[in-house]
């Protein structure tokens, strides 16, 4: 069915992982520790070990589009005002420059609570971001929402500082 798209996504994610070591600091301030390497958004022609070229031609590596994570309060799936701009920027990109692009929004939770329920809570966070984007005109069919629950924390600690980094939804583009 969607196998081709899945393979592309897997390849993109693998590239993203491989690029982690070579990436410089993300272009964000406060939450840089917790940000996934979303601005590693090389185009498919860019090799992971050449991160500098990606900074030039790829709009997804620049400005607000380089920011991919929406952070949430505990037990909440409300998209906070401070992330509206980020979500709007991606929505504009998807309805303007990139009408053929597909994205996956991946929800995440902090470690507190039951694993499977957290998986569903993460999915609801991803749905919340998706809802904002569909209201802004992005077609439902271009967005898949999934979740890692509490299984893939970016911050490994067991305190609020770590938890706040892990309560988030990440926007990932197919083909990156």
């Amino acid at each position: 069915m969607k196998n081709a798209a899945l393979i592309v996504l897997v390849a993109a994610a693998l590239a993203g992982c491989a690029s982690k070591e070579t990436q410089t600091e993300p272009q964000v301030t406060d939450r840089s520790v917790g940000q996934p390497q979303a601005n590693a958004g090389q185009s498919s022609t860019t090799r992971p070990n050449q991160p500098t070229t990606s900074q030039q031609g790829n709009p997804l590596a620049q400005g607000q589009l380089a920011q991919r994570s929406v952070y949430f309060d505990y037990d909440s799936n409300a998209v906070k005002d401070e992330y509206r701009g980020l979500v709007q920027a991606h929505s504009r990109y998807l309805t303007g420059d990139k009408r053929d692009a597909r994205i996956r929004i991946e929800g995440n939770c902090d470690e507190r609570g039951s694993r499977e329920y957290n998986l569903a809570l993460g999915q609801r966070r991803a749905e919340a971001v998706k809802k904002v984007m569909t209201v802004l005109g992005v077609s439902d069919s271009r967005i898949e929402t999934t979740s890692y629950g509490e299984e893939k924390p970016v911050a490994q600690g067991h305190d609020e500082q770590a938890w706040s980094q892990n309560r988030r939804a990440d926007i990932k583009y197919a083909g990156e």
Partner: peptide, 25 residues
């Protein structure tokens, strides 16, 4: 979307699962 939480029926013929294919889980 998500596919998770498998649980076997006692006769082994079915799995109850949690899916988000239609929106929420």
């Amino acid at each position: 979307g998500n596919n998770s939480a498998p649980s076997w029926s006692p006769d082994g013929r079915f799995l109850a699962v949690a899916l988000s294919k239609d929106g929420l889980t």
